[in-house]
Design a protein around this nucleic acid. Structure first.
Length: 223
DNA sequence: AAGCCTGGCAACCGCACGATG
DNA sequence: ACATCGTGCGGTTGCCAGGCT
């Protein structure tokens, strides 16, 4: 037996929220708070909506200090760094971007930023050393299937690269398959493992050195 | 002008997890 | 220990506006 639905779908309104509904929800929460119970909130607020829908609407659009609209370059950089580091953990990424919501970031990534990065992606056999890596977006990736090949490929790709000074998230290495292994960038060591983040700040003139051992599949990003 | 296509975004769905009894 | 409930999260869907033919 599956779990009971959170609301009676036949009797709740779905689809876009009207300004009147927004106002009703906003006024209720500003006056009474959520009461720690979203399921019963719509009834108390006189809304014919599912509690989850109310929660989503409030968190993503109605709560105070939400920042909507275009993302700036700093935000882009943070997003691409964190996606490279931890994957699509939108709630965590949103925690690094004050006033942005996870849904907003997710949509932005899926519709714009991902394409932007892919458009900048270099050819696989071009070494970063052959390019300049300033503070703007740069994306480079290499993947290798076997441990030895991965280690060699990683080392070959980034060994000796001058690391441009940047506030954080300079280099990120991902071990996609939890294969372990360590990567050393700029003298700082970070453990391998899926979702392992490694970020700066890095000082000007530092060189990347790599020691990848038992990894299976690595991707390298420099944002 | 009309129809089609595409991209962007708001909203929904279902699952996982923690809290509680 | 187990069942139930509410919440949080990420993936996906569907609508709509704008561009293109």
């Amino acid at each position: 037996m599956g779990r009971a639905p959170c609301c009676d779908k036949a009797n709740v309104k779905r689809g876009p929220w009207s300004p009147e509904e927004d106002q009703q929800l906003r006024e209720f929460i500003e006056k009474h708070g959520t009461g720690g119970n979203w399921i019963s909130l719509p009834q108390k607020a006189g809304l014919r909506r599912c509690g989850k829908s109310c929660r989503l609407r409030w968190l993503n659009y109605l709560r105070p200090n939400i920042k909507l609209g275009d993302f700036n370059e700093d935000e882009d950089r943070i997003i691409c760094s964190l996606v490279a580091a931890i994957g699509s953990r939108w709630s965590i990424i949103a925690a690094h971007l004050p006033r942005r919501t996870d849904n907003d970031i997710k949509n932005y990534w899926n519709t714009k930023l991902k394409k932007k990065l892919l458009g900048l992606q270099q050819t696989p056999n071009m070494k970063p050393q052959q390019q300049m890596l300033p503070s703007t977006y740069y994306y480079s990736a290499v993947s290798a299937p076997a441990p030895a090949a991965a280690a060699a490929a990683v080392a070959d790709l980034v060994e000796g690269i001058p690391i441009a000074p940047c506030f954080w998230s300079s280099f990120t290495a991902l071990n996609h398959q939890n294969g372990g292994g360590d990567v050393i960038f700029g003298g700082a060591q970070y453990g391998g493992g899926s979702g392992e983040a490694s970020w700066g700040p890095y000082s000007s003139g530092a060189k990347a050195t790599v020691c990848a051992s038992s990894s299976r599949s690595w991707s390298l990003y420099h944002c």
